[in-house]
Simulated scan of single mutants.
Amino acid sequence: MEPIKSLEHICNGCGAKLLVPEVRCKDGMKCPACSGHLALTGNAETIAFFADGNHIENQTPLLIIELQDENSVPVVKLNGEKIEQKQKVEFSWLTKTQEPVSGGLMYNIKHIANAKGRFGIKTTKYEHGEFAFEREF
């Protein structure tokens, strides 16, 4: 589902503010409450949805990887939780095509973890689509 861009309008009659999807905006629109003329305020809002129709703003992103430049340490958040003391960060994504098992996602995050005063290495790995079938057994 494509993001929906809405433009804010204000009614010259009653002062109501309305968000109207950009594709439905046209000159001469009337306020549904008082039939006054709607004027564009210039404010815009983009609302995006997941393929299942859920509003993205209500969801915590699964994975965020931010990199300032080629030499910086990436900032990684998994399910909204910042991962500290990273040793390895891998991410790969493939476009889905007409092939039955095409496309996919893979991430592998390895970091030092402290559990009850004992340090160890924690690895979080996920493979989906083509990546799930690449391994040799």
Rank of each mutant, 00 (worst) to 15 (best):
S6M: 15
I83V: 12
S102Q: 09
K30I: 13
K86L: 15
S6L: 15
P100A: 11
Y107T: 02
N12G: 07
Y126P: 00
Q68H: 14
L105C: 04
N114I: 11
K77L: 09
G104M: 03
H37T: 15
T123I: 15
C11L: 10
A48F: 03
D52V: 02
K82V: 10
K5N: 10
T95W: 12
I109D: 00
S6E: 15
A44Q: 12
F119Y: 08
N58C: 08
G36V: 09
N58E: 12
A115L: 09
Y107P: 01
L38V: 06
E2Q: 10
I112H: 04
E90F: 12
K88N: 14
M106H: 08
K30A: 13
L18I: 14
G13Q: 14
P32F: 10
L78N: 04
K125A: 10
A115D: 10
I83N: 02
T97F: 11
G129N: 04
Q68C: 13
C34D: 11
Y126Q: 06
V23Y: 09
I121W: 01
L63F: 01
A33T: 13
C25N: 05
D52F: 00
A115H: 07
A39R: 14
G120T: 04
N108T: 05
K26H: 13
H55Q: 13
C14D: 14
C11Q: 00
L63Q: 00
E130L: 11
V89C: 12
N79S: 02
T95D: 12
E22N: 13
A48H: 02
Q87P: 04
T46P: 03
Y126K: 06
L105A: 01
S6Y: 08
H55P: 09
K82Y: 05
G104P: 00
A51V: 04
G53W: 12
E70M: 15
V101I: 15
H55G: 11
I4P: 02
G103P: 03
Q85F: 15
T41V: 08
L105Q: 03
G42S: 01
S35W: 05
F50H: 12
P32K: 09
I65L: 06
K77S: 09
G42Y: 01
C34E: 06
L67V: 06
K86I: 15
C14P: 08
F119W: 07
L78I: 03
Y126F: 05
S6D: 15
L67Q: 09
H111R: 01
N43H: 11
V89D: 12
N58H: 08
T41I: 02
T60F: 01
K17C: 04
P3M: 05
I56Y: 09
P32A: 07
M29A: 11
I56Q: 13
H111S: 04
Q59G: 04
Q68P: 09
L78Y: 10
A113C: 13
P3W: 03
E8F: 00
T123M: 13
I109E: 08
G36H: 03
F119E: 07
K30D: 10
T123Q: 14
K77D: 00
I47H: 10
I112C: 02
S35R: 09
